[in-house]
């Protein structure tokens, strides 16, 4: 059995990450989950949040918008609409995004189909800020 898992993070615009890691934590729709090598096959939707991976003593963190994760014993594939690593995130841009999304949220009723999308936007912006604060 493999000791490490291959973590792949892809967005429609690019392949962000592909490397062997020891452990991944990802934000599932029903709560965060951690993955180690030998995990049972598992398929879930992701909510916007942070993905943390660890290789030895090195950790990496990324902000992702909603998407999917496929977990296999030796491989984890994460498909998201958008993702940014900590070095790519601009605090300023994330703040403006957050502000915009929150304003849009106030104007929408809860039944509006755009409501859930806007909440995701808020959460994605918040996740970006959280990732930035970790540093």
């Amino acid at each position: 059995m493999a000791e490490t898992i291959l973590l792949e993070i892809v967005t429609p615009l690019r392949k962000l990450l592909s490397r062997e890691v020891d452990e991944v934590t990802a934000p599932g729709r029903d709560g965060d989950f951690g993955v180690l090598a030998g995990h049972t096959p598992f398929l879930t939707t992701l909510r916007p949040g942070e993905i943390v991976y660890r290789k030895g003593s090195e950790t990496g963190v990324l902000a992702v918008s909603g998407g999917y994760a496929e977990v296999l014993p030796d491989k984890t594939t994460i498909l998201v609409d958008a993702a940014e690593t900590d070095s790519e995130i601009s605090t300023e841009a994330a703040r403006t995004e957050l502000q915009k999304a929150e304003d849009a949220l106030k104007a929408l009723s809860q039944e509006d189909p755009a409501y859930a999308q806007t909440i995701d936007k808020v959460e994605y912006a918040q996740a970006k800020l959280r990732v930035k604060e970790r540093k």
Binding site: D30, F33, P41, F42, L43, T44, T45, Y68, L72
Partner: peptide, 21 residues
Amino acid sequence: GQGEYLYEPSEGAVLASLLPK
């Protein structure tokens, strides 16, 4: 040999969001 997936929140919900995507 992977066998069945575990779905979260449920098979239906995952499919419903994944297929249109």
